[in-house]
Structures are given as structure tokens and as C-alpha cells.
Write a protein that binds this DNA or RNA. Sequence first.
DNA 1: CAAATTCTGATTTACGTACCTCAAAAATTG
DNA 2: CAATTTTTGAGGTACGTAAATCAGAATTTG
Lengths: 346, 346
Amino acid sequence: MKPTVHDIAKIAGVSLATVDRVLNGRPGVRAVTRGKVEEAIASLGYVRDLAAANLAKSRTYPFVFILPENDNSFMIGLREEVLAAVVRSSTERTDIRIVNVPPFDPRALVAALNELLGEKPAGVAFVAIDAPEVREAAGRLTGAGIPIVTLVSDLPDSTRDHYAGIDNIAAGRTAGSLMGRFLSAPSTAGQMRCVAVLAGSMLVRDHRERLEGFSAVIGDAYPDIHILPVLEGRDDPVLAETMIADALRRNQDIAGIYSLGAGNRGLIRAVQRAGIASRPLVIAHELTASTRAALIGDVIDAVLNQDAGHEVRSAIRVLKAKADGLPVLAAQERIRIDIFLKDNLP
Amino acid sequence: MKPTVHDIAKIAGVSLATVDRVLNGRPGVRAVTRGKVEEAIASLGYVRDLAAANLAKSRTYPFVFILPENDNSFMIGLREEVLAAVVRSSTERTDIRIVNVPPFDPRALVAALNELLGEKPAGVAFVAIDAPEVREAAGRLTGAGIPIVTLVSDLPDSTRDHYAGIDNIAAGRTAGSLMGRFLSAPSTAGQMRCVAVLAGSMLVRDHRERLEGFSAVIGDAYPDIHILPVLEGRDDPVLAETMIADALRRNQDIAGIYSLGAGNRGLIRAVQRAGIASRPLVIAHELTASTRAALIGDVIDAVLNQDAGHEVRSAIRVLKAKADGLPVLAAQERIRIDIFLKDNLP
DNA sequence: CAAATTCTGATTTACGTACCTCAAAAATTG
DNA sequence: CAATTTTTGAGGTACGTAAATCAGAATTTG
């Protein structure tokens, strides 16, 4: 039988009330008595029954998710996953509120974070913007004892408790490696190839990191591949289409395109219209309805993906654990970089 | 506030005892009364508080995992993950027992399954062997109301409730696709290449399916690649080394090797000893200490992996849900095919 | 050493559900 | 319509913990 508080009381020779005081850090216990109780707890290997404790406290976990009002498929999908978690709230004892902020706006994000200082939720998850003022706002929250998790985009060198997202440098490296291997045959050599890179904005950390990883691998392992200047499409399908179409027209020998941001609908249209003869090798991020179709239709060759559902569920699990002062299962919470070819689409 | 049994009683105009009788399917309730109660339940949107119910029942979930006594790294890792789950048992209200059976032995597996008919655990997970008698034994268990989940290797056309493992045909297709793309440059053409396939045994379903997927893609999309007759290494490093070394000696123009089973240590040694000049492209399954080292050391080019930890945790979640008659979150429980290059190693 | 203060024990209620008993009410049977 | 059976109500205890009250004991203070 699992030991209970009653067993502790018996072993330590104290009353239930004293055990409760020790367990919940309430005052009014002499050091000697506290010692006896802690000894009993250790000797019994007691672990508090969280379900029973939460029942007694009729506890719910009030969490806040701060999401940018972005309209690309990935962010829409992420939002849907949070909403799905809201639906599950009653069964999971959570009470999740979504706060919307304008995208790419550090000050709005800081304002939203500051707002929460008074509210004191049991945890906060947000899509970080890599700026000093955001780091400071995050510091204030953790300083106030509120666990915070960054979602999709990290905030390094901050006090955030956890990052629920992929390693973007590794993602870029993986894309570079696939690009290099798909493009070069072991036998052929000598000729130079060009690769175009389409990003959303170089101001966003994930995009910078992906480019960094991509460039590093291409530079190190595939010196015969030349990376063209980055096209910043602002994650906008229309702009992306124009830019890619232009690039393909100007530069007939583009052998590959790496799209490391969103707005892939435009990219796909541009490649389709350019004609099959010169179809470049395309590697993109995020599995959405359009990239999936493009993968099946042989317009995109590989898609790197992060599973938004996993990220949201992981963030919630981690916030709960942090709120309860419990350790997290690192292996379980690691968000993986999914590589999809048309052959392993889910 | 979440509705409770008390609210139901009030709304339906009956006593708590009657609500309890309806909720738990106990006899002694007239159809009319039952109707009133069910109506109240529906109108309130009542959902039973599982934590409280389990506390009241002081319920634990007695689960049984049947594992083959295989000594390859993957199975050892799988076993470790189950043991880790055993350690977590007290916090997760599970009571997990491991039953060992000799590998590749349908009759032993059937005996182990039959044994459980009397024991009546709340759920059974096992690594299936694709044989009619196993299917029948599984049918007897589900017939007795015991939820069962197949782990790593599936049992199609059976009554199993769930499969916690990867789609092996898709895995084979993915390997084929990677092999094809890594080997052939878009420009070069004409010359025939040979690819060797190393399997454990063609009697095991996962291996058959992987080969099936691999062959299909190569046949369809890469007609200039020739697949050599399958080498059956019985997942044994020593045998695998001999077979691969032999094949490389006999067939100087082997351009690639697909290792779809275990026993990769032998494969790695054979490739390393064959010398760098003729180093073929190698795609293997399961990320272990040795395949990881080989990936970093450029002896293996890609590793397809299934995360044993995820499989075990998923199996437990699903068994719990089935035991409680709850639905499973399909998206959460889908086991993905991880593709690892040296660039995205965790 | 009495008074004030700090600890500690005993007991109770609560969380939401399960499960039990016993009596009373209602329905069914002969 | 009396006897029997079935259905229902009322109430309690339990699960393991939280949190509160209040009285009594131990300790410290002046």
C-alpha cells in the first residue's frame, strides 16, 4: 500500500495537523518536530497523491496563452490546438485563456506580459519575440513566481522555465543537408549550383537560426552550392510569389529553393507557373494543407514540420509540472523536427 | 462550476443513490426514472470527475506488458522504457507487470496471452507476432473485455484496440525515397546501381512491410536502381557483418545498403572495414548508441527511428482510456517515423 | 514563577465520486 | 386487496489530502 499522511503521523509520533503543516510549509512547527516528520516522510518514501490533493483544493490551473494575431496556416493551426486544449479544460483541471497580441510587436507583447503580473495565473505560455524588453518582462513574471514557457519561438538567456519548440538551428542544418544531398550526385562534380532562400523576416529569431544552420551545412559540406541573397517575403503569399517568380526568371539556373518561413502558397504558385523543365528542388517548413498538396503533387520535395498539437500539449504538461514543483520528463517534452517526404505523410 | 452528481439529482428530482445507480449501470431503476436522470446528465453536460472516481475506488490500472527476450539495442531500450513506466507507477495509478517470452515464438506468446485470461488485467500491451493463433488468443482477450494494444509490431485483422508503433510500409517507402534521391542526381542517367538490403527475418511482419515499401518506391520512381536479393541476418551483429562483408566483396558496385532490421553493429563494422573508396550509402533503422556514432562518423547516412519511450507512454495512455471507455486523441497517439541525419540528432 | 507566546493535537468539514445498508414507497402479482 | 417484489430515498462511510478551529501542552519571556 502506498503510504499516506496518516502513516507519516503514526511513524513520526505526531498528529495529522502537524504533518500537514510540514508538508505544506505552514508555520507553527518546531525544528525538532519538523525534522521527525521529514525523517518519517523520507523513510516511508511518501509522495503526495496529486489527484487527491487537487480534489481537496478543488484546484484548477489558470493558464494564459499569448498568441500573435498572425494569419498564416501555422499560427492558425497553433491557435486551434490551444482552443482544443480549452475544450479539454474541464477534464484536465485547466482554465486556459488566450490573449491576442499584434504580430512582430515587442511592446505589445511586453504590455500583455505585464498585465499578467497582477492576475497571477498558474502559468504563462507565449510565442516569444527576441528583444531585451521582452526578456525583462519575462524576468518579472518568473520573479513573481509565475512559471513561463516559450512556445514555437524561444527567448534565450532569459529566465523562462522551458521552451516548447524545435531547435531551429538543427532544422536549418537538416534542410541544408537534404538540399545538398538531393542536389549533388556522388559522381558528378565541378559545376556550381544556386539555391534561393525565402524567409519571412530576418528580424525573427527562428528564421535567422534556420538560415544560420542551413548556411553552415552548405558552406561546410557542399561548397559547390551557392546561396543567393535571402528573399524576405514577410510570410505573405502574394509577395512571396512575386519574389520567387522574379528570382526564377532572372536566375535560370536556380537548382533549389529553401523556404524557411510561412507564406508557402505563393511559393508553390510561382514554382508551378515557372514550368516543369526548370523545376527546382524545394524544401519548405510547416506541413499545411497547401504544402501537403504540393508534396503529393511533386512541387515540394521535403517539408520540415513542428507539430503544433504536441507543442501546445507539452507546454501545458510542463506548466502543470512547474506549478506543482515537479520535474519534467525531458525526453517526453522534446519537440522533434519532423521530416516529411511524400512517402511518410501522416 | 462544473456540474456534479448532486446537481444531476436536483435537476432530475431523484436521490443521489438513483443517480449513482444510473451512472454505474447498477440495477433497480425503472426505465422512466433512468430516462429522467439521463436527460439531466445530458442537459447539464455532466462528465464524471475521473480523478475523484479513481480516488473513491482507490483504483489502480493493472497492466501487463509482454516483451520478447531479444538482446538487440532497440528491444533493450524498449524494456528500459517500460521499466521507467513501472517506476512512475505509483504516481500514475498504474501497476505494470512485465512478462518475458522467447523471441519469434508464436506459441510462447499465445501461452502468455492465455495465462492473462484468468488474471484479468485492466489492459495488455504486447509485441505481436503475425500468426493466426496469436490473432485468436488476442480475440479471446478482447472477448473477455480486456483492452489490448500491440506494440512496435502490429497484428492486423485482429480485434486489438490500438497499435502503438510506426507504419512500416511508410517507413520502407521513406527509406526508398531517401535512397533514390541520395543516389541519383537529376542530371546523370543511364547507369544501373545496386542496393543491398539487410533484414532480420522475412518471417517478421515489420521487416516484410519495410521491404515492401522500399521496393515499391525504388521500382516506381528509381528504375535505374537494382535491389539485390535480401540478406537475412537474424538481427545478429556477427552474422550481419559476415553477410555484408561478403556482399561488398562479391559485388564491387554496391551503391547503397538498406538495413531494415536490428544488428547494425555488424553492418557498421563491415562497412568501415571495406574502406572509404567504395563506401556505399547506408540507411538503417533505430537510433542506438552504435547507429548514432556511425551517423556522426559518416558511416551511416540516415537513420529511421521509432521512439520507444513514446510508444510505451502512448500504449499506457491508450490502455487507460480504453479501460475507462474514453476516446483516444488520435493525433497525439500517432507514432511518427523519425528521420535522423547527423544534423538533427537529438 | 506567573504570564505571554509558541507549538502541537484532536477533531471537523470539504472536494467529487463509489458503494453500502436500511427503510419507505411504489408497482406488480396472485 | 393483500402479499410480494421492485424501485427509490436517505444516510452513512470511504478514498487521500487540504484547511480550519480550538483547546491544551510546552516553551519562552519578564
